[in-house]
């Protein structure tokens, strides 16, 4: 069983905050130790152009910048891709892809997005490059 983040566990109706500054509490606390989140392994399979060899990146850092700059975390050096094109980052237990005001846009499963919480098997398209996002959960403790 997965608990995506602590916010989910703390939103019991009886614990509605009287001010947002007060921390959310619960009258029926969940035994969090029993809901230890499984390990997730996240990978991006990058196919930049047809004749280039695809490669995989295991996502471990909190942020990756994607773009035409050679010093980008994930460089995609080809036309149609902005120097700083998109950013992949980790927030509240989620992996998010964000377009950085690129000229030609960032697409997830064919939809042009500004930001998108990624799910297993999402296909990101940046210019002619495709990046397949996969997430596999480890065994539940």
């Amino acid at each position: 069983m997965t608990v995506k983040n602590a916010e989910n566990a703390n939103s019991d109706a009886a614990a509605a905050p009287r001010t947002a500054d007060s921390s959310l509490s619960s009258t029926m606390r969940l035994p969090m130790e029993e809901f230890d989140a499984p390990d997730a392994e996240m990978v991006l399979d990058v196919r930049s152009v047809d004749d280039a060899k695809p490669y995989s990146i295991r996502i471990e850092k909190r942020t990756y910048e994607i773009g035409r700059r050679s010093d980008a975390d994930i460089p995609l050096i080809q036309p149609g891709i902005s120097r700083r094109h998109a950013r992949l980052f980790h927030l509240h237990s989620e992996e998010i892809i964000e377009d950085l005001n690129s000229t030609n846009g960032t697409y997830v499963n064919g939809v042009r997005i500004t930001r998108c919480v990624l799910q297993n098997n999402d296909v990101i398209r940046i210019g002619d490059a495709t990046l397949l996002f996969t997430r596999t959960h480890g065994s539940v403790k």
Partner: peptide, 13 residues
């Protein structure tokens, strides 16, 4: 016409 099923966490411009 671009057709997609709306999904949580997505922002489009």
């Amino acid at each position: 016409m671009r057709v997609f099923w709306a999904r949580e966490g997505v922002t489009i411009e």
